[in-house]
Every structure is written in C-alpha cells, then in structure tokens.
Design a protein around this nucleic acid. Structure first.
Lengths: 212, 212
DNA sequence: AATAATACGGAATATCGATTCCGTTTGTCA
DNA sequence: TGACAAACGGAATCGATATTCCGTATTATT
C-alpha cells in the first residue's frame, strides 16, 4: 500500500525516519487535514498520558473532534500513533537535557535533571509505558528513546561523576532504569502526595558519592 | 449462583476470606478435582510469573493437563485465578518477613529482606503485575497485598530505624513503593546482568542513615 | 455392580476493540 | 463557480479471548 513501511527489525534509525516522514508529509496536506492531524496528536497525548495505551482509538478520535477513519488515515495503527506521541515527548526530554550540559555545577545539573524528568513524568502514563516498554510490543519506540536519551544522560552523568558528586560505579543504563523504576514507584504510591518527594530523595542520596 | 461472592468494595478482609474459602472448599472436592485444582494453580503460577496477565486461560489449562471448563469451574474468572495465585506468593513473602522480625541485627534483617524480595521477584511478572496493579483492575489483590505486606514491612522498618541503620524520614509506604519501582526498574534493564546489583545498591544506600 | 452425584473437555457463544471500506463532504484550482 | 482530488465519518468487518453450556466420563456410595 504505502511506501514508507520498511518495518525494519532493528529500530535504531526508526525514530529519525518517522519524524522526518511526519514532517515532510504534513506540508502536502490540505489545511483541514493538517489541523486535524495536530488535534489528533494533542488528544492522543492527553489520553495516552492519562490512561496509558488502553484508551480506545474511538475515544481519541472523538476528543479530537474527528472520525475514527481520520485517525487511521494519519496513523495506520494505534501503535504508530503512540510512537508519534512519544517521539514528541522524547524530543522535549532530550532538549531539556542538552540545555543542562553546560551548567556550571555538573552535580546540580544532573540531579536537577533526573528530578525534573521524574516529577514531570509522574503523571504521564504514556511516558511510563514507553519507558518501561510494557504493554504492546514497541521495540522501535523503546530503542528510539533508549538511544537518544541514553546519550544525553551519559553526558550529564559523566560530568557529574567527574566533579565527584555522583558515585562512579554506575552507568547511564543504571540511571535510565532507576528513572523508570522511580516513575513507576511514584505511580504506585498514588494518593500520598508526600511519597514522591521521599522516594526521589532516597534515589538521589543513593546516587551521591558515598562517604566511606 | 455461588454464595461466597460478597464482592466487598474494600479489600481489607478479602485476602483472608478468599484463602479461607479456597481451603475449606477444597476439602469437599472429589479427589481428582482436588488434584486438578492444584495443578491449575501451579500452571497458572508459572505462566503468570513468566508472561504476566496476558497468558490465555487455554494455555494454563493445557499446561495443567485439564480442559478450559475445569479451570473455570475452580476459578470463575481469570481475575480470580490470578488473585489465588498472588495470594500464595503474598503468603510466602509475609512469612518470610515474619521470620526475620526477631533477627539480632534489625538493619541487616531489613536490607536482607528487601534485597531478597526484589531479587526473587525480578523474574516474576505476576508479582510485578500484582504489585504495580497495572493491567486488569484488581483493587482487591492490590490492597490485599498492601495490607499484609505493609504490616510486616512496617515492623521490620521500625526496628531498623530504631537501631539507627535506616533513615528516619521514610515510612513503610515509601519502602513498598520503592520495592515496586526497583522490581520494575530491573525488569526494564533486562539484558545487562550487572545492572540489578547496582540498582539495589543505590536504593539501599539511599535508605541508609545519612552521614550529614 | 449399579446408581447418583461430581467433574470433565472443549465446541459454541459473547464481547470488545482495532482496522477496513465506501458513500459523502470539503478544499483547491482553473 | 464547477469539477476533481483529498479528506471525512462511522457502520461493518475481523480477530482474539474470555466465558458458557451440555453431553460424556469419573468418582463416590449403596
């Protein structure tokens, strides 16, 4: 049917392809179609964030003020829609990290960043689903995030470690896993508003250079 | 149909009821039925642990060497079967904790316990599903675990804190959330065998009484 | 051993939600 | 403004599973 579906087994380059595809494609869309595409993405973001992957396409369509068919014309699959939504979020996270790389105090930058990501993502089921790779089998998304996020994280971490504020025996993978875990831990503690702070505190303290 | 379905909104006493129900009920079963019931629970445990809630009932039935109908006669719902499986696991966790309450070194007992639970549960998707309460909406299970586990955890924690080995600004809820998160963090890091150790280490260090 | 009471297996059914299809509507362009 | 292409909406289709049902087989009871 369509061209752009090489469905590469490895997802390394997929995120690049996908956004390129999306962007270029949008230019040749009729104005109403462009508007709808954005609406769909917005609706999808809020619903995925609030309820995770289980929301029905129909619901997203309705909230976006379009029919199901329109959703499918833009995103041939629920999974692809999800990917598109996550791509956006990922983009923000990465840019966010990049803006901190030149910060004066590497340690502060590092802790500031992971705290920010965790607090920001705590209420976002879409992000958690994407990070934890659970539900649906979206290897592409997962590794897309992995690669980009991992890179900036690695930089922030390395600087923080060199400055002596973060223990040296861990790597970017640990951080990534810990962020996912913390995110999910916080979700699990839904209710007690005070828990998140304590949990983040424990994690950060555990990451600091140990006294011994 | 059956009697024992008060479907209490609050799950406080549910776990007790359920296991009582299960046990007493079993006594009046025909011998072959008793055997099948156990087989089903065993099969369900291994499948749920390995693949989470998504396994098909048919698969569990087949592995247990019985027909689908037999599974349903014992557990009217997939959810109830899952609950029964989790109840067992929970039981073990609680007993495990209780056996450590009188340990000489409260701090050691505490860290030993959470480490053990996490390492033991790392490969168990059923436990993670139960703890994180994701997928299916099993409030009963979740709160059942919450209550029992929370109680023993609270005891272990209190003693560890009194002995000065664990920071005083956190509670059992934090621990529970952290355990869930760590479990999921480890799942996410599948692959790198070295990550789990590092992650657990970070958490434990973060929980220790801080030097400052 | 015969009968009743229980359990069993698994085909048939029910449900739920993603995805397809096509007649209708709207935007673009001459 | 008229004609054509591009989009639209949403009913109908498809697929996957949980769950029901009932004729058969097994265990318990006499």
């Amino acid at each position: 049917m369509n061209e752009n579906h090489t469905n590469t087994p490895m997802g390394s380059s997929l995120s690049q392809n996908a956004s390129t595809f999306d962007t270029e494609r949008a230019k040749s869309l009729r104005v109403d179609a462009q508007r709808n595409r954005v609406r769909i993405l917005d609706a999808a973001l809020s619903f995925f964030a609030a309820e995770g992957l289980s929301v029905r396409i129909e619901e997203i369509a309705h909230h976006a003020g379009v029919g199901i068919g329109t959703v499918y014309r833009n995103f041939p699959t629920k999974e692809l829609l999800f990917e598109a939504v996550i791509q956006r979020y990922q983009q923000k996270l990465v840019e966010d990290a990049e803006s901190l790389i030149d910060h004066d105090d590497p340690g502060e930058a590092f802790f500031h960043y992971i705290t920010r990501v965790i607090e920001g993502g705590a209420a976002n089921k879409a992000l958690k689903a994407a990070l934890s790779g659970s539900e649906i089998d979206m290897k592409a998304v997962a590794s897309g995030i992995s690669n980009n996020l991992r890179d900036v994280l690695a930089k922030l971490l390395a600087r923080a470690q060199q400055s002596g504020s973060v223990r040296a025996d861990i790597g970017a993978d640990h951080i990534k896993a810990l962020m996912v875990g913390t995110l999910l831990a916080i979700e699990h503690s839904a209710g007690e508003a005070s828990l998140p702070t304590g949990i983040i505190s424990v994690i950060c303290d555990g990451l600091r250079t140990q006294p011994s």
